[in-house]
Write a protein that binds this DNA or RNA. Structure first.
Lengths: 216, 216
DNA sequence: CGAATGAATATTTTGTTGATTATTCAGCCC
DNA sequence: GGGCTGAATAATCAACAAAATATTCATTCG
């Protein structure tokens, strides 16, 4: 890692700390510079502007969140359906947890999205790719019936939108949201899963909190 | 209709006009009073406050929108699936149209919801009841397989949420949203509709604009 | 006496100014 | 010369005052 990259990291570390504690707007460039023992002007040799520091932090946050979700894919002894459902539930729980306990992080994300709409588009795309991978696996193993993989991916992603932005419209509790999501998935799985020996497709059960999936 | 009710109507008519033209915040009580040839104080004999005039207008708007959707139920020669899909598409088109062409009306609705959260809850409930009615019909006729009617209604309502608040997150065109909704419904219908003679459940087609359903 | 007014009051919005903060850049240092 | 500084400038925010507006209510009117 080059000298410049190390300084960049230093700035990011300082910014993450301050953004988390005091929030993005209340953190000044002068403070970050002070933390890094440099002049405020020097920050601009490493980042184009204040918002770009936030973007980089949010980008890493988003990447690591998807990585955690991806670890579900590596879990053995699980059907594609279980994987898909666990990913979606984990996502809901993660977002809900953020909204409840990490208001500054949520605020940061909102600032970044407001300033750089592309950021959200890319985050959604990453998540959709994860869905697509699971669907593809399930189709290959004969567990799912899928006409068009891209179309099914988009549909699944769109219909679970509410659980990626909970509490935006309604103010439901996590328990309510989980029950509702289980209903939604039950309904969808009936059309997605190939029934076993004529038995009807079983309903979705709310997965247990998997502590190995705890995000940060 | 009593004398008092007539005056109330007069105020509502004046307010609807001004809210649509100049918007809720830019319309003053004094102006409404002028329009109705009365003093501003007298408005308060008919409405508790300015927001209550907006609430009444929005309530009527919402009721008439649901009534239009209900007219689908009366259409003959249509399967429950067609009815359900047409209602959901009509809802999407209606909301989209509002966002595109009636910004003042949308603003009014947002103001009302911000001030009276209950308003939104009731609107959603009305819509859900409509869904439930169609699902119930379809289940009775043997067209749908439904375990629990309330649970299925909630699930269907939740998974179509995006099409009731389009353009809130993403800025998709109506065409994109319609294509996406068709995919979502295709997927869900596979789990909801009883297949005919072993043939697979056909995909959802985007319904034609039904001019008789045009909302105002 | 109930209906209505409009002046009085309370609240909200708008505008202005000063202060704070982001960003730039001419110049300094190694 | 490339890395860095910090003062200069531009942009944004915060606080306060002024204006506009919502709401109330003592008073008037029919």
């Amino acid at each position: 890692m080059s000298e410049a990259d190390l300084i960049r990291e230093k700035i990011i570390v300082a910014a993450r700390e301050r953004f988390a504690h005091y929030g993005y707007p209340k953190t000044t460039i002068a403070e970050l510079a002070e933390d890094c023992a440099m002049s405020s002007g020097n920050i601009y040799r490493f980042f184009k502007g204040k918002i770009d520091i936030a973007v980089e932090i949010a980008r890493r946050e988003a990447l690591s969140a998807v990585e955690v979700l991806e670890s579900v894919l590596a879990c053995p002894y699980r059907s594609s359906r279980q994987r898909l459902e666990e990913v979606i539930f984990a996502d809901l729980r993660h977002t809900y947890h953020m909204l409840e306990n990490q208001p500054k992080t949520v605020e940061l994300a909102q600032t970044v999205v407001a300033e750089r709409p592309q950021f959200q588009i890319e985050s959604l795309r990453r998540e959709r790719r994860l869905f697509q991978r699971i669907l593809h696996e399930g189709a290959a193993s004969g567990e799912f019936t899928i006409d068009s993989l891209p179309a099914t991916t988009i549909a699944l992603h769109a219909l679970t939108l509410k659980y990626r932005y909970p509490q935006v419209f309604t103010k439901q509790s996590l328990e309510e949201l989980e029950r509702e999501l289980a209903q939604v998935l039950s309904l969808v799985m009936r059309g997605l899963v190939v029934p076993q020996e004529g038995a009807p497709v079983p309903a979705t059960k709310i997965p247990e909190e998997d502590t190995s999936l705890t995000l940060r």
